[in-house]
């Protein structure tokens, strides 16, 4: 049976700001099985990146996990020391960030930077090291690898740099790869290529992936499961197919309707008026209520329970899950 590789339970993360304590991640729970991809979707400030940083124990100075558990292969990552986490990051958990130009060091060659992972985690040297580097760069589908080992990041295009970042992160065969907006800085045709590289790597190695994105188009193409985040909370989760064909939460439904579709000529796009609430003192009820066209008094005062759809764990926190949008 396929057991959960990662199980996040009631994760809550605070960020200190000048204006007060921000609850960036609020009581977030989800689980991820082996060889599956979970997409964390949300607008900027919804807490998707903070969730990932909490999992990896890489929160900024002003951030702190206030509660919950992050069970990775049954062990709570939040209880690990930073020394222990250093061993896990890069070996068992890889992380790919948005901008490959900032995650690569401009002063070292590609070969050196990819090699660093093997030197540090696998203690490889000499010919064995070079062989391993070439092999993993080939896995990331970089053409003519042998000639490019001595190239510097600036000699690579954006897409190629992101492939190098992928190579570094899958070098040790991680069980989990967290990709935080991995293609946002890239051209549209290159975005799909990069995600295809990731998917092929996943198919051959059986790793799990968390794909953080705001692009629903990419979620539809590449993820198995999806969790929609709004104002620090997961408001809907389930299989991509279920959530996209039968969205429950009014927010998810509005979001899907707001994407312009090429084949339908419309005069106006459906919009979600307003903007997310401040997370310093969030409202007691549903956080989407102020922007929701269906909201009533109950929505504004009482946080919604999970409504289950019954199909493949599809659920949403919305009192109005069954009602049609006017």
């Amino acid at each position: 049976m396929n057991e959960d590789l990662l199980k996040v339970e009631n994760l809550t993360t605070y960020l200190a700001s000048r204006a007060g304590i921000v609850t960036a991640v609020d009581d977030v729970s989800f689980s991820l099985k082996r060889n599956r991809t979970l997409a964390l979707v949300g607008e900027s400030g919804s807490g998707k990146s903070m969730t990932c940083l909490s999992i990896e124990n890489l929160l900024p100075q002003n951030g702190k996990v206030a509660g919950g558990r992050v069970l990775f292969k049954g062990e709570d990552l939040l209880k690990k020391s930073s020394k222990e986490m250093e061993k896990i990051r890069g070996r068992e958990i890889g992380m790919i960030l948005q901008d490959p130009m900032t995650s690569l060091n401009p002063l070292f060659t590609i070969g050196h930077q990819v090699g660093e992972v093997f030197r540090y985690h696998k203690n490889l040297r000499g010919e064995a090291l070079k062989k391993a580097v070439i092999e993993v760069l080939e896995k990331a589908q970089i053409p003519a690898v042998a000639e490019r080992l001595n190239s510097y990041p600036h000699e690579f295009s954006g897409g190629m740099r992101q492939r190098v970042a992928i190579a570094i992160n899958v070098a040790c065969g991680p069980d989990l790869l967290i990709a935080d907006e991995p293609t946002t800085a890239l051209d549209v045709t290159v975005q799909l290529q990069i995600l295809r590289v990731l998917r092929e790597l996943q198919q051959s190695s059986g790793m799990s992936m968390i794909l953080v994105t705001h692009d629903l188009n990419l979620v539809e193409r590449f993820a198995d499961e999806v969790a929609i985040m709004y104002a620090g909370k997961i408001v809907e989760q389930g299989s991509v197919k279920e959530v996209f064909t039968r969205p429950m939460h009014v927010y998810t439904r509005s979001l899907l309707a707001a994407i312009p579709r090429l084949d339908e000529k419309v005069d106006r796009l459906r919009t979600v008026p307003g903007q997310p609430p401040s997370l310093i003192n969030p409202p007691p009820g549903c956080r989407f209520a102020v922007r929701c066209t269906l909201a009533d008094d109950k929505c504004r005062t009482e946080y919604p329970d999970w409504t289950k759809d019954g199909k493949q764990g599809h659920q949403a926190t919305c009192w109005k899950a069954g009602e049609a949008i006017k």
Binding site: S254, L269, V272
Partner: peptide, 14 residues
């Protein structure tokens, strides 16, 4: 801009 805001601005431009 975020998707939901993007739609607002596009409608406004129109």
């Amino acid at each position: 801009l975020d998707v939901s805001v993007q739609a607002q601005i596009l409608n406004l431009l129109k």
